[in-house]
């Protein structure tokens, strides 16, 4: 904020924020942003663009989530990022429009692997194989090729193994609106995730 042009941009954003609090409405602005975005947007990102505070954005997002509950599009939340998707009960129409075949379902091996990644938040191949007791290479390859998981980074350990995490395609594919929609597991799965909840961060 040291230079004049920065100060100018800041006051522009403030002016925009004022108009959002007026007639425009923050929810409508967020709706427009989500519509044009080609990826999920975080609350912080929306706050940066609109000049509204992050708590305000969060409130508006949860209002939008409610608003969309009965509509043809819904608001999907994955690890604090939001995007608009079609309502899951319209899947048949969407599939027909997009010319998609009735999907071949992933194998139970792939689904087990996906479940481990989703509930742990992050998992390496070795951690997955430790749980499943079998080689999980091809299950991981299937999930990666379907963009249901992605490589989130590398572990700072010998061999620098890849760490996998779920994508928002994962939620959309299973018709979930948030990781909170996954059922609770009554297990202490990991020291940092004692409740058996998928971490939504």
């Amino acid at each position: 904020m040291a230079t004049g042009s920065d100060a100018g941009a800041a006051s522009d954003t403030e002016a925009m924020a004022d108009s959002l609090h007026g007639d425009l409405g923050l929810g409508r602005a967020i709706e427009g942003l989500l519509f044009v975005a080609d990826r999920a947007l975080s609350a912080a990102e929306i706050a940066g663009v609109t000049g509204a505070s992050e708590p305000e954005v969060r409130t508006a997002l949860s209002e939008l989530t409610e608003h969309y509950r009965t509509r043809g599009i819904i608001l999907l939340e994955h690890r604090n990022a939001f995007r608009l998707v079609s309502a899951p009960d319209l899947a048949d129409y969407c599939r027909r429009l997009l010319g998609l075949d009735q999907r071949r379902h992933p194998s139970s091996a792939a689904l087990e692997t996906l479940g481990i990644v989703a509930y742990r938040g992050e998992a390496t191949r070795a951690e997955i194989e430790r749980v499943r007791g079998v080689d999980s290479d091809s299950a991981l390859a299937t999930l990666l090729s379907r963009n249901l998981i992605r490589e989130a980074g590398r572990l700072d350990a010998p061999g620098r193994p890849a760490v996998f995490t779920t994508t928002d395609t994962f939620l959309a594919y299973f018709g979930l609106t948030s990781l909170d929609d996954l059922p609770d597991l009554d297990l202490a799965l990991a020291p940092d995730n004692p409740a058996g909840r998928p971490p939504n961060v």
């Binding site: 819904i74 899951p88 899947a91 969407c94 599939r95 481990i116 749980v131 594919y173 018709g175 799965l189």
Partner: peptide, 24 residues
């Protein structure tokens, strides 16, 4: 732990069978 994840897999499979995917 493994059995718990098997139930997760069954649950996910049931969701797919219900055919309800959202589309981006």
């Amino acid at each position: 732990i493994y059995a718990a994840f098997k139930t997760v897999a069954v649950d996910l499979d049931a969701r797919l069978r219900a055919g309800q995917s959202a589309f981006i």
